[in-house]
Design a protein around this nucleic acid. Sequence first.
DNA 1: GGTCCGATTTTC
DNA 2: AAAATCGGACCA
Length: 201
Amino acid sequence: MSSPPPSTGIIIFMSWNNNILPQNFYNRNPVTVAQELLGMYLVRKIGSEYLVGKIIETEAYLPKGDKAAHNFTGKTKRNASLYKTAGHVYIHAMRQYNLLDIVTEGQSRPGSVLIRALEPVEGVKIMKKFRNESRIENLTNGPGKVCQAFKVNRDLDGMDITKVTSNLFIIKNTEITTKPVTITERVGIVSEKNLPLRFTL
DNA sequence: GGTCCGATTTTC
DNA sequence: AAAATCGGACCA
């Protein structure tokens, strides 16, 4: 019952099946989850290919009282995935792009973490093709770019990313990270501008 | 069916 | 600095 490791790359992926983040990782407040996701690896399986990126920028959207969060005016068809349980994804359109959120607590506490930027690790060639872009630094340095590079579209909205069978999930970084987390304000929003909910590695 | 607008990206 | 571009929410 084990998936093949990526074609090239790092030793940490040798046992990555054991390192998929479980539901109880996500089932905490989004501020904690957003910070702890930094340094972990987003993995996307497309056919027999694996795309991997290290998470380097996230934002938290709060379950209650956050005017900038998509849950603020209640449940709609669009944001229904936020009301699932922790570890599902909420993928929504922003202009002509898609953005990827992970649901944190869910149900009556529909918070989430927006994946804003990655450092490409594995499958760079495919990312370049999906992005129609050759500069590595331009592949995944924005939330819309992340989805384009990893072929994350709204077909995946509402999927559970805590299962071994998922074609999208996040694995633990088993290396020791010493870099401190930088905390700043969220970007691209008009309300709740000044909350310290953006986290960068 | 029309209108408005945004958790963005790209280009001028 | 401004255009490109589009699905969803809302109202009619």
